[in-house]
Amino acid sequence: MAQSVLDAGWGMFRTMLRYKCDDAGVWFEQINEAYSTQTCSCCQSRTGPKGVAGLGIREWACEVCGAYHHRDINAAINILAVGRGRLAGGIPALSA
């Protein structure tokens, strides 16, 4: 039950954020965060800890390039890169 409450909380937060962005005329788009903790932010290879057992591993080294990552910081860098990549593609015009 706790998971469904948590999901409902994030869903409500996204709804409010989308509403506020629409009201302010700001572009809002969700980014899929899947595999952001497993993907190396340096070489983009997916070599990080996997599965439920890997959730307890907070720091890891990439097997391909050898970069050392903290799980949460690495995920934040990957999500930021996706957002910036979408911005570089251009912001679509808002329809009135």
Rank of each mutant, 00 (worst) to 15 (best):
L94S: 12
G56H: 14
F13W: 05
C21D: 00
S95A: 11
D22M: 08
I73M: 09
E33W: 03
E33Y: 05
L6T: 15
V52F: 08
R18K: 12
E63M: 06
L6E: 14
G83E: 08
A67R: 08
Q38A: 08
N32D: 15
A2K: 15
S41K: 03
R14F: 07
G85C: 06
N78F: 03
G9W: 04
A96C: 07
D72A: 08
C65G: 06
S95E: 14
G89V: 02
I73C: 02
S45R: 15
L17D: 01
R46Q: 10
G9Y: 10
M16P: 00
I57R: 04
G90Y: 09
E33T: 10
Y19N: 01
W27Y: 15
Q38S: 07
L94Q: 13
G54T: 12
P92M: 06
G56V: 05
E63H: 05
A76N: 02
Q30R: 10
D23L: 11
S41L: 04
C40I: 13
F13G: 01
G56D: 03
L80N: 02
Q44C: 12
Q3P: 01
V64N: 14
A88V: 05
M16R: 03
A8L: 09
I31D: 00
A93Y: 04
I91G: 00
S41G: 04
H70P: 01
N74P: 02
A81G: 02
C62W: 10
G9C: 08
G85Q: 08
V5M: 14
W27N: 00
Y35K: 07
R58H: 09
W10N: 02
Y35T: 06
A81D: 06
D7N: 13
G54L: 15
G9E: 11
Q3H: 09
D23M: 10
I31K: 01
T47K: 11
K20M: 04
R86F: 05
I31N: 01
R84M: 15
A8R: 11
V64E: 15
R84P: 00
Q3Y: 10
S95P: 02
D22H: 05
T47G: 14
A93V: 12
G56C: 07
V26R: 03
W60L: 11
L94E: 13
A24V: 01
V82M: 13
G25A: 07
A24W: 04
C40T: 08
W60M: 09
T39H: 03
P92G: 03
G48A: 07
K50N: 12
E59K: 15
